[in-house]
């Protein structure tokens, strides 16, 4: 279980997270949604210590991740992250991107790392792209390499930070399909996304945030038909989420 307790984050004048408390069950997939600037990415980035909260604590089981470097490292070893801008190592080929942490962190030999990395790249449909550099790949391919890089470390949980926001619609479909298949195969994740129909299909729980606060945590079928907060109703009407038919057309 991940316990987030009274988390606050200030960036200069703005109060990005305001007393955020939530418990994430690792057996459930969550989607955090909300308008831009609602604090959803910041919350996600706090979970693996890429942001340090101004106050409050995050515990994974009973380990406080901000207590020591070791604790944070332990938390990160079970948690992968996929970024909006892919963040591939620009000087490494696709396969080297995946192998780097396997060699440096998991201490695999070059051959073992190559084997694990190629399995991961094959899984995201990139068996023909091993030796391409990031600048030679399309956005969708880059994001799939980054997913493979994360999966190769066999994390228990993957944090997706707006994985399709930097992609055009066609590539969005290709990446969402990959993520959907992974979730179907049992991958647990917490995703921050603007793709409502995707969130509805993949997530068990929707965490709705607005202006640095969590307004509701609702099972996903219920959220999209009968959200609790009026802000969510308003948000859903703005994002023009009009039920399943349009949603399906968008990504399957």
């Amino acid at each position: 279980m991940i316990y987030v307790n009274q988390l606050n984050k200030h960036f200069k004048e703005s109060h990005v997270l305001q007393d955020v408390s939530i418990t994430f069950d690792p057996h459930i997939t969550y989607a955090i949604i909300g308008s831009s600037g609602s604090g959803k990415s910041t919350l996600l980035r706090c979970l693996n210590g890429l942001e340090t909260p101004s106050s409050g604590e995050i515990k994974i089981d009973d380990i406080n991740i901000f207590e020591s470097k070791d604790n944070l490292a332990k938390a990160r070893s079970n948690m992968g992250m996929v970024f909006q801008n892919f963040n591939l190592f620009e000087h490494k080929t696709a396969i080297e991107n995946v192998m780097f942490a396997l060699i440096k962190v998991k201490k695999l030999s070059h051959d073992e790392a190559f084997k694990t990395a190629s399995t991961a790249l094959d899984k995201v449909g990139l068996s023909h792209r091993y030796n391409n550099y990031p600048h030679q790949l399309s956005g969708g391919e880059k994001q799939r390499v980054s997913i493979a890089r994360t999966l190769a470390m066999s994390p228990q949980l993957v944090l997706f930070d707006e994985p399709t926001s930097a992609l055009d619609p066609e590539m969005t479909i290709e990446v969402l399909k990959v993520i959907k298949n992974l979730v179907k195969d049992g991958l647990k994740c917490i995703l921050v996304t603007h793709e409502m129909s995707f969130a509805k299909e993949v997530a068990d729980m929707i965490v709705f945030m607005d202006q640095g606060k969590i307004l509701e945590i609702t099972p996903s079928e219920q959220f999209f038909t009968q959200p609790v907060s009026t802000r969510a109703v308003q948000f859903l009407s703005h994002t023009q989420f009009k039920g399943e038919t349009q949603g399906k057309k968008h990504y399957s």
Binding site: N48, G49, L50, A73, R76, S77, M79, G80, M81, F83, N85, F86, N87, L88, F89, E90, H91, F100, A101, K104, V105, S146, R149, T150, M153
Partner: peptide, 20 residues
């Protein structure tokens, strides 16, 4: 972003400096 990605992968500061 690339340094953040490396941190998220638990890559040590030394390996981030020398490898990235």
């Amino acid at each position: 972003g690339q340094i953040e990605a490396a941190k998220a992968l638990n890559i040590s500061t030394w390996d981030i400096v020398t490898g990235i």
